[in-house]
Design a protein around this nucleic acid. Structure first.
Lengths: 252, 252
DNA sequence: CGAGTCGTTGAAACACTTCAAGGCTTGTGG
DNA sequence: CCACAAGCCTTGAAGTGTTTCAACGACTCG
């Protein structure tokens, strides 16, 4: 029922002795300052999964028996209305958790955006381990706290920001989300489509496209390809994201 | 940094031997199935606080040294943009927690809507207790999970629902939020103003007022007073909330 | 090369906001 | 007890940011 995102600085990567025979994954990430003993036990109950772009992982209404940790790639988590309207509530990257909630069914769907690998923990085994190792539970609570804070920021965006502010906020925040692909020289990697960005920001694809074009025309960003751009004026982008209006320019 | 709301069914009320000498509060609520020993220890470190309508509890940017549990009344939790635009990210009622996050400053503000009483726990004391009593940490994680699920629902509302669907959703969900004031015969108590409802739903006060009027005209609700109404046709209200469009009526 | 998917751009439509006026309620002071 | 000011809410009319509808361009794949 819930999904917990990592903060890069809280993540430590632990390399396995050898690649998993099933899926080839070589590492998995856990959050917080876990002791080596905790890591070893966590490792012991992990099962590796590989997904191709577009593959579903969980579907709204599914029984929630497992807990997942993304080890590479990116995913979308979303909710649907009966008529098909979609709200993407988050993108998941390396280190993010999925499905920690206490309920017995998922209240959202999760699909792979690109080829993605994960670790799966059976919830029963995980809970048993968490009882023995309180640091695990504590680390998860920390993640939940950060995730809630991010959710509040997103509510502010969806409820009160203009289209331009939403797109700017998205470009400012995204680079910090994926620890596996740190931003270099202001280059932002966008694995998702315009449609996914739109459904994440509560806009249409046309509006996203138009606002990106305006940011480009204003010289604030340069579009390198459909899935990457470079931020040329980070301070202006940040100002727009925070709702600090610019007098002229960008109006048209 | 985070705020955790209770689910009524998870809350147990525990009556104190006598009223608190400072504020007069007689009970506080904790979540989950805590053992009597845990309750007693929690009780021992609790400090009682009373607020009047409008009083602030925490301000965005404040150092986060305490953790609060609402024992009566209602509060608003919100974030602001520099130009004053406000997004209320949640309303808090009896049993709800405030400030569980790990960070050292609050990322939101909290104010009392009506006269409200709370229990305060010093974070350091609480964490020490949680280390000894894992059930406490576990109960908080459950709360965080439910809160995250609610946040995802709100993102769906803010990003993809129409004004009418938002107001309908609000009226459907609100009665279940306050365990201290259960809904009887479809009567919904609204302690907050239209302005607060608007800032919660990402609308203006005029739009909220108009949509309430339309629901009244359609015979779906009856306005009893400014701060209470009765739902006459719950199934129609629920259908609207879920985005199931009605053919005719309600159009104007 | 044609089909399909995804993205961009323009024009028209519309849902919601903004601006404006008035009503209702509450509290205060003469 | 009434007058009056101050909030809060409702309602109407005009304005606008975003959506919807439509066409076209770019890229990928068989």
């Amino acid at each position: 029922m819930i999904e917990l995102r990592s903060l890069p600085e809280l993540c430590i990567q632990r390399r396995r002795e050898s690649a998993c025979s099933t899926c080839g994954a070589r590492e998995f990430s856990v959050c917080g300052s876990l002791a080596p003993g905790d890591l070893a036990e966590l490792d012991a109950i992990a099962e590796h999964i590989g997904l191709q772009a577009g593959d579903p992982l969980v579907h709204e209404g599914d029984a929630a028996t497992s807990l997942f940790n993304v080890t590479s790639g990116s995913m979308r988590i979303y909710k649907l209305l009966p008529d098909g309207r979609r709200q993407i509530t988050g993108f998941l990257f390396t280190g993010d958790f999925i499905g920690l909630a206490s309920g017995d069914t998922h209240a959202f769907s999760v699909e792979a955006i690109e080829d993605t690998s994960l670790c799966r923990f059976r919830k029963s085994e995980y809970r048993a381990l968490a009882r023995e190792r309180p640091a695990l539970e504590s680390a998860l609570l920390n993640r939940a706290a950060h995730e809630l804070s991010a959710a509040q920021n997103q509510m502010l965006l969806l409820g009160r920001k203009t289209a331009r502010e939403r797109v700017a906020t998205f470009l400012v925040d995204l680079p910090d989300r994926d620890p596996a692909r740190p931003s270099v020289g202001g280059v932002v990697h966008l694995p998702m489509t315009r449609s996914e960005i739109a459904d994440y920001l509560g806009l249409t694809i046309e509006t996203v496209s138009r606002e990106l074009t305006k940011l480009k025309t204003a010289g604030i960003v340069t579009l390198l390809s459909l899935h990457s751009l470079r931020v040329e004026q980070p301070e202006r982008l940040r100002a727009i994201a925070e709702g600090v209006q610019e007098r002229s320019a960008l109006s048209a």
